Simulated assay, not measured.
Amino acid sequence: MAKPNYFRENLVLFGALAANLGIAVAKFIAAGITGSSAMLSEGFHSVVDSLNQVLLLYGKHRSGKPPNRKHPFGYGRELYFWAFVVAILVFAVGAGLSFYEGLTHWRRPEPLRDPTVNYIVLGIAIILEGTSWTIALREFLAAKGDQGIWSEFRRSKDPSVFVVLFEDTAALAGLIVAAVGVWASHVFDAPRIDGMASMVIGGILAMVAALLAREAKSLLIGESADTELVGKIRDLVEAKDWVTGVNHVRTIHTSPREIFVAISADLEDHITIGEGEKFIEALETELRTEIPELSSIYVRPEAREDAARLTSD
């Protein structure tokens, strides 16, 4: 990753980190002054989000390391590992502490003191979180093309964008819940409502964590490239007059922008080994030119009847 572009490429993460650090401090101060359980839960939430951005930045830095003997395909998938850790943190720390704090406040309710500070902090937090959410959404929409938002989430191979987008969405939902909880607790003189709001925030975080964990797990196991890109590879290979048929094109993302491809192709019987080597070398050069994301290309000459088939999932 080029140094001049590092901040630009990670603008979503840096923006979210700056916003969450400031918000976390303000929320804890407000919780200490007013005794709001929902506000304390939101403070925990912001701390977890800040740690998550740090981990994703670390993961992106590590994923840029060049290949070596121990890791011949590079470290790109390390980003996927840290995205999975982030999902665990959101669930275990964010959701767990929020639900525990809400349950404690429900069982031993404390009268809510002057909520004015809470309203001020919540208003500032909504502005900051909304700004971070807007930046993340803009980056996400720029990458999705004609895909729907949910389809792009399932298709995306870059967790540094969709993790922040989902975290910020959960944060905005949590802020709304916290505001309603503080208001209802004060208006109806029912401190248990504040504890209930904290548990609802925990539930929101748990759902987001489950979605993130599912997608991060899929990326860790190894996801194929888009069907359009696979089709393009197949078309380029089939267009060669020395190829009688393409048995299969198998791809796997080794990082958000790097793809390993293994191609099994049936060649004309009259081609010699020397000619085949030259043809395949030229094909690999063309594939890298047409599709720069292909970091590793493996072409195997193989008779159609001998080629292994993939079972449908």
Rank of each mutant, 00 (worst) to 15 (best):
E9R: 11
A26T: 06
F14V: 12
G96L: 03
F44N: 04
I29S: 06
L57H: 05
A92H: 00
H61Q: 14
G59N: 01
A87W: 02
A83T: 04
P66C: 09
A87N: 04
A83P: 08
F44I: 13
L51Y: 03
G32N: 14
K27C: 12
V85C: 11
N68T: 03
L57K: 02
G94N: 07
G96F: 01
T34S: 13
A83D: 09
K3F: 15
L11Q: 08
H45G: 05
L40R: 14
V54Q: 06
K60T: 10
S63G: 08
N68K: 09
G96T: 05
S41P: 00
A26L: 14
F28T: 04
A26S: 11
A24H: 03
V47H: 05
G15V: 09
A31W: 04
L40M: 15
L40S: 07
V90A: 09
R8N: 11
F73L: 13
L13F: 06
D49H: 08
G32M: 09
L17V: 09
L57N: 06
I33F: 12
S63L: 05
A38S: 13
V48C: 12
H61C: 01
F73E: 10
F28W: 13
L57R: 02
V86P: 00
A83I: 03
L13M: 09
A31L: 04
G76E: 01
L21S: 01
A31V: 03
L56R: 11
G22D: 09
E42M: 02
G94S: 10
Y75K: 05
S36T: 02
Y6H: 13
I23C: 02
P67Y: 10
D49V: 12
I33Q: 13
V93G: 04
L57G: 03
L40E: 12
N5L: 15
G64H: 11
R62V: 14
K60Q: 13
S37P: 05
P67H: 08
L89S: 12
D49I: 06
L55M: 15
A92Q: 07
V90G: 07
E9M: 04
Y80L: 06
P4Y: 08
L55R: 11
G43S: 11
K70I: 08
P72H: 10
G35W: 08
M39Q: 07
F14K: 06
V86Q: 01
I29A: 13
S46H: 05
N68Q: 11
N20L: 11
D49N: 14
G64T: 05
K27V: 05
F81V: 13
K70E: 13
N10A: 08
F14T: 06
H71M: 13
G94A: 07
A31T: 05
R8V: 13
L11N: 04
L17M: 12
V85Y: 04
G94P: 00
A92L: 14
S63A: 15
F7I: 12
H71E: 10
G59I: 00
K27Y: 12
M39T: 14
